[in-house]
């Protein structure tokens, strides 16, 4: 399966208490705590990076950088609830993505995975091309607008969750989302017409 909808973590650390224990163990430098956090949040971080970069290899590199950077800064993490921990990882990821884009260290590529039997490579290519058009349209957005679109449409976070983790009001998030979508729609329209 190429697009694994179920692989978004959460099953291992659904229990809040277990997540708290994992964060505390990670803060003590214990490997099992880090492994638990890795299993829970790697898919989200990877999806965030891929949504921005569109390059599978680059997204994997950035995701790796995020977890390495998290090791040195986890002592600053005070809130051990799941949304806060997820927001903390995504916050690191956001800056790592920006760093990656600034460095321009890797040319973007589609990195098509066509090894899965039963899946039409043409359909995959079409989906990826459309996704690339969206990513190109998102170049017109601000960093905050991109961040909100990824949280809402890729990570499926609710308006309330996005508001809480980005320290905004629900109304502000809604307004930013509306403006961002409008900008994406405008950017996509001429291309479609062409």
């Amino acid at each position: 399966m190429i697009f694994d909808e179920s692989n978004r973590g959460g099953a291992n650390l659904a229990d809040t208490h277990r997540l708290t224990q994992a964060v505390e163990a990670a803060q003590r430098g214990e490997a099992h705590g880090w492994t638990a956090l890795f299993e829970r949040f790697y898919p989200d971080v990877h999806a965030y990076a891929l949504a921005r970069l569109g390059d599978l290899t680059a997204a994997e590199d950035v995701t790796q950088d995020v977890f390495v950077a998290a090791v040195t800064s986890i002592k600053t993490l005070r809130d051990r609830r799941e949304p806060a921990v997820q927001a903390w990882f995504l916050h690191i990821c956001r800056y790592k993505v920006v760093d990656h884009i600034r460095r321009g260290s890797r040319q973007r590529g589609l990195a098509l995975d066509t090894t899965h039997p039963g899946v039409d490579p043409g359909a995959i290519a079409e989906v990826n091309l459309e996704a690339d058009r969206v990513r190109a349209a998102m170049a017109h957005l601000t960093e905050d607008q991109r961040d909100i679109l990824i949280r809402r449409f890729v990570l499926d976070q609710s308006l309330e969750d996005v508001a809480a983790t980005t320290r905004r009001t629900v109304g502000a998030v809604k307004s930013m989302q509306h403006r961002a979508l409008e900008a994406v729609r405008r950017a996509l329209s001429p291309k479609r017409a062409a």
Binding site: F3, E5, R8, T63, V71, A131
Partner: peptide, 22 residues
């Protein structure tokens, strides 16, 4: 499409590499 493309499963060797690096 953007969502599906972004939710691609990471490659196993990349996940293991990231885990080891961490």
């Amino acid at each position: 499409a953007w969502r599906l493309s972004s939710r691609r499963t990471p490659r196993r060797h990349a996940v293991e590499r990231a885990h080891d690096a961490m």
